[in-house]
Simulated assay, not measured.
Amino acid sequence: MVQIVISSSGAGRLAQWVLLELQGEGEPRQSGGLAGSVLGDLHYTHQGIPVLIVGHHILYGKVVQLEKPFAVLVKQGAGESQPAGPHARYTVTALIKTKLLFKTRPKPIITNVPKKV
């Protein structure tokens, strides 16, 4: 039997992360992927409704509490590139208890509509 040691990081509270769920797919303008790129701007209304602005589009979402929280694990110790073995150690660095759900179609942001002459 393989034992995997899981411990929490630091003496203080764990970081609280938020999961972002979008319907559809996001494609980068440049070939290379989305890693390290800024997706958009996240804002909240006075009523606590999340608003995501991506380019010239706006998405309205809702805050959902997860039924089962996720733990963010970082592998530590010997053979970090190898699969879990007898000396594998993981550290819990954050918890995810909430997700922002954007399930509606994005709406275009139109700021100035030219009038016909």
Rank of each mutant, 00 (worst) to 15 (best):
N112K: 14
L20C: 07
V63E: 12
R89Q: 14
S81L: 12
P83G: 02
S7M: 10
G33D: 03
G36P: 01
L52V: 06
L42Y: 05
I109Y: 06
L59A: 02
R89C: 11
L34F: 11
L22S: 02
G10V: 07
E27C: 08
Q76E: 15
K116R: 14
A94W: 04
F70L: 14
M1V: 04
T104K: 12
K75G: 05
P114C: 05
R89T: 09
V63A: 07
I58N: 00
A71P: 01
G77Q: 08
P69T: 05
T104S: 12
H87V: 00
K68P: 02
G85D: 12
L19A: 10
E21S: 10
L20M: 08
G33E: 05
L22V: 02
T93N: 05
Y44G: 01
H43K: 14
I96P: 07
A15K: 15
A71M: 13
A15H: 13
K62H: 09
G26H: 04
D41Q: 10
D41E: 10
P50R: 02
P86N: 11
V72Q: 13
P106S: 03
E27N: 07
K99Q: 11
D41M: 08
G24N: 10
L34K: 08
A84G: 06
I96N: 06
V113S: 15
V54R: 05
L20D: 01
T45I: 05
